[in-house]
C-alpha cells in the first residue's frame, strides 16, 4: 500500500541493561510521520523520549539489552543494514538529529564552520572548500551571520550555538531531522526565534521534523501532529489541531490541563503521583495508578484504538 510516510516505526523496542535490572525505555512504539510534516513527541522527563530518538537513529549506548522492531524510512526497512552501512547510508544522509543540550555538542577546539561542514565532508564527500560554502548557506538559513564560521563555540551565545547545532543537522540536506529538546535552557525570545527558523526551513527545504519536548506550549508553534509518550509507550497520536482542542487519553487530558492558558479562566491542574519506574512498569495500562477514570479493564494491557485517524491506547475509547 503506497503512502507518503517518510518514517514509520513498528514495534520498536529499546531496553537497557543496568545493575538493577532491565530498563524498558522504549516499549513497543508505533507511529508514522508523513512527509513534510512535523510531529511533536511530548511527555514527562524520563518517559523515554530521548531513547526513542536514539532508537530511531540507532545511536545506542553500550548497555543495550534488546533492540528490535522496524524503522521504515520511505517504506524501506533500515534494520537490514549493519552498523557501518547504517552510518554511511542513513545517518545524516536521510535522517539527522540535533542532540539534547545541543549547545554542548560543539567541539570546543574546532571552528564552528568546520564543525558544521563535518557531516558534509563525511557523507557527501565534498572537499573542504565546498563543504564550507554549504555550511555558510546553512548559517544563513538558521540566521547566524556567515562570518561566524571562523569562530569557536565558546565565542557564541547559547542561542547562536543552538542555531549552529541545527545548521549542523541540516548541512547534508536530510529528509528528516530529529530535534531533541532544541530550546531547553534558552530564554523565551530565543525559543520563539528558533521555532520561526525551523518553520521557515520546513517550508523552504521541505523537510520533516520530529520534535521531542516537554514544553507543549512552545512546540504547538511547529506541530502538525502530536504523539504523547508515557512510560516508554506512545499513548496517543493525532493531528495537532484536534489534539490541542480535545485530547483523548486521560494522561493527555491531564497533561494539557497542566499547561497555563493565557485567556481561559482556569487554574493549571496537576497529575497526582509520579511516573512509574521503567525498570518494572505496571502491568495492564501503565497510567492506571494515576488515572482519574480508572476501571476494571485497566488491569489488561489496552490495545491501540483508531478513532478518525487518531490513535489512542486507552480502554475508555474501546468501541
Amino acid at each position: 500500500m503506497p503512502n507518503d510516510n517518510v518514517l514509520s516505526v513498528r514495534n520498536l523496542k529499546l531496553f537497557f541493561k543496568t545493575t538493577k535490572g532491565v530498563v524498558r525505555a522504549v516499549d513497543n512504539v508505533d507511529f508514522d510521520l508523513v512527509r513534510n510534516r512535523a510531529v511533536v513527541i511530548v511527555g514527562e522527563s524520563g518517559c523515554g523520549k530521548t531513547s526513542l530518538a536514539k532508537a530511531i537513529l540507532r545511536l545506542l549506548p553500550k548497555n543495550v539489552d534488546t533492540y528490535s522492531g522496524e524503522v521504515l524510512l520511505n517504506n524501506h526497512d533500515t534494520m537490514q543494514y549493519n552498523d557501518e552501512e547504517y552510518r554511511l547510508k542513513i545517518r545524516w544522509v536521510k535522517m539527522s538529529m540535533v542532540p539534547q543540550a545541543a549547545m554542548n555538542s560543539l567541539n570546543p577546539v574546532m571552528k564552528v564552520g568546520n564543525q558544521v561542514a563535518e557531516p558534509a565532508i563525511i557523507h557527501n564527500e565534498m572537499n573542504k572548500e565546498i563543504a564550507l560554502q554549504q555550511a555558510k548557506k546553512m548559517f544563513q538559513q538558521v540566521g547566524v551571520p556567515d562570518d561566524f564560521i571562523s569562530r569557536y563555540a565558546f565565542e557564541l551565545s547559547g542561542g547562536m550555538r543552538q542555531r549552529v547545532a541545527i545548521a549542523m543537522s541540516l548541512v547534508s540536506l536530510p529528509e528528516l531531522v530529529i530535534l531533541d529538546e532544541p530550546t531547553s535552557a534558552l530564554d523565551v525570545l530565543t525559543q520563539a526565534n528558533i521555532f520561526n527558523v525551523l518553520k521557515r526551513i520546513k517550508k523552504d527545504l521541505g523537510m520533516s521534523f520530529i520534535l521531542i519536548t516537554h514544553d507543549i506550549a512552545t512546540s504547538s508553534e511547529l506541530a502538525d501532529d502530536v504523539a504523547v509518550m508515557y512510560a516508554g509507550q506512545i499513548v496517543e497520536t493525532g493531528d495537532a489541531h484536534r489534539f490541542f482542542d480535545q485530547p483523548l487519553h486521560p494522561y493527555a487530558i491531564k497533561l494539557m490541563d497542566s499547561v497555563p492558558r493565557l485567556r481561559a479562566r482556569k487554574e493549571p491542574d496537576f497529575i497526582t503521583g509520579q511516573p512509574p519506574s521503567l525498570l518494572n512498569p505496571p502491568t495492564g495500562c501503565r497510567f492506571k495508578d494515576r488515572c482519574p477514570s480508572r476501571f476494571e479493564r485497566c488491569e489488561e494491557e489496552p490495545p491501540t484504538f483508531n478513532i478518525d485517524g487518531r490513535t489512542v491506547k486507552c480502554w475508555l475509547h474501546a468501541n
Partner: peptide, 25 residues
C-alpha cells in the same frame, strides 16, 4: 563529552573521531 556523541551521531568514523575530536583535546 556531548560533542563526541554528536560527532558519532552525524556519522564520523572512529578514525576521524580519534584524530579530530579526541586527540586535539
Amino acid at each position: 563529552a556531548q560533542y563526541i556523541e554528536a560527532a558519532r551521531s552525524y556519522g564520523a568514523g572512529s578514525w576521524r573521531i580519534i584524530t579530530r575530536y579526541l586527540v586535539p583535546r
